[in-house]
Nucleic acid binder design. Structure first.
Length: 296
RNA sequence: CGCAUUGUCCUCUGAA
């Protein structure tokens, strides 16, 4: 079952629905039965692909057949609701989990009717770090930073220790709003708690510094990354390119592109879009066209 | 008992 579920996960990630179905069939043929993990994988995949009603059906079936809906199940739904703009419903469910466990999914007026009354083997599923992280991320994306902070405090009150995901979410949000000093304040707190800067931490900081044209600080961070063995990825470079383009440092921007190619980090659409736009704006259509051709 | 599933970074219909 573990093996098949792992395979299934692989196919689902790639969006290979047909192959995924084959795995499921083969699994049953060999008398391996789907469990929580398997169902969660399917549920997540359906939701990500926008098949919400099918996902809901699956949820019903899981419920009826006594697969325990667990915290992961709830987190998948909560994440789906956040991304679907139903943030408040997501928050409501997360709150409800403290009392009703997974039955909170079936609570007031959503489409998940009549879910388990959570006598799930006597242990009910309660919100975890990921639940909070999901909600906080949703609030941040919606620009509701104050509420996000409240959730953060609430989380600490439940004895859940924030990890770098949660910190990164705040740092990113501040950087995006250009509130660099707030971002660095969070960073300080993060490091005090023993979390090291992650790749995304660096990327967010670079994005933020870039919006203030603090190029030297950016290069400083790049050096630090190198020292600490954190390898930049496409996003890192794209953030730098954005900053250089905004500052009209076009040749610097193209040398970043060269550096990427040299390091074997493939530029993506975002990289080329920014560069081409910059050169067009500068009236240098020749280079713009060259870039276009490289992109192809 | 252990192994598989969930959360954070670049991509704006860049037009005035």
């Amino acid at each position: 079952t573990v093996t098949y579920s792992t395979l299934l996960h692989g196919y689902c990630c790639e969006g290979k629905v047909f192959e995924a179905n084959n795995v499921l069939h083969e699994m049953m043929m060999n008398n391996c039965f789907p469990n929580n993990y398997t169902c969660n994988i399917l549920l997540h995949s359906l939701w990500k692909r926008g098949k919400i009603s099918e996902a809901e059906e699956l949820l019903q079936k899981m419920n009826e057949r006594g697969y325990g809906l667990d915290t992961v199940t709830c987190n998948i739904i909560i994440d789906g609701l956040c991304n679907g703009g139903k943030l408040d419903k997501a928050i409501e469910i997360a709150n409800g989990m403290w009392i009703h466990g997974s039955a909170a999914l079936g609570n007031p007026g959503n489409s998940f009717i009549g879910l388990v009354d959570d006598s799930n083997n006597g242990k009910k599923c309660i919100p975890d770090l990921i639940t909070y992280s999901t909600i906080i991320s949703g609030l941040c994306k919606a620009g509701r930073l104050d509420e996000a902070k409240k959730k953060f405090i609430e989380m600490m009150g439940k004895n859940l220790q924030p990890d770098s995901f949660v910190y990164d979410t705040f740092i990113h949000s501040f950087c995006k709003e250009g509130k660099i000093s707030s971002a660095f304040r969070v960073l300080k707190d993060m490091e005090k708690k023993g979390c090291n800067k992650s790749l995304q931490t660096y990327n967010s900081l670079i994005l933020g510094l870039g919006s203030k044209n603090q190029i030297f600080e950016i290069y400083g961070l790049m050096d630090e990354m190198r020292e600490r063995g954190v390898s930049p990825n496409v996003c890192t470079y794209n953030n730098i390119i954005r900053c250089l383009c905004d500052g009209a440092k076009f040749q610097d921007a193209t040398s970043i592109l060269d550096e990427m190619l040299q390091k074997g980090i493939s530029p993506n659409i975002a990289s080329f879009r920014m560069l081409i736009k910059a050169f067009c704006k500068a009236g240098d259509f020749r280079v713009a066209q060259e870039l276009f051709e490289i992109a192809l």
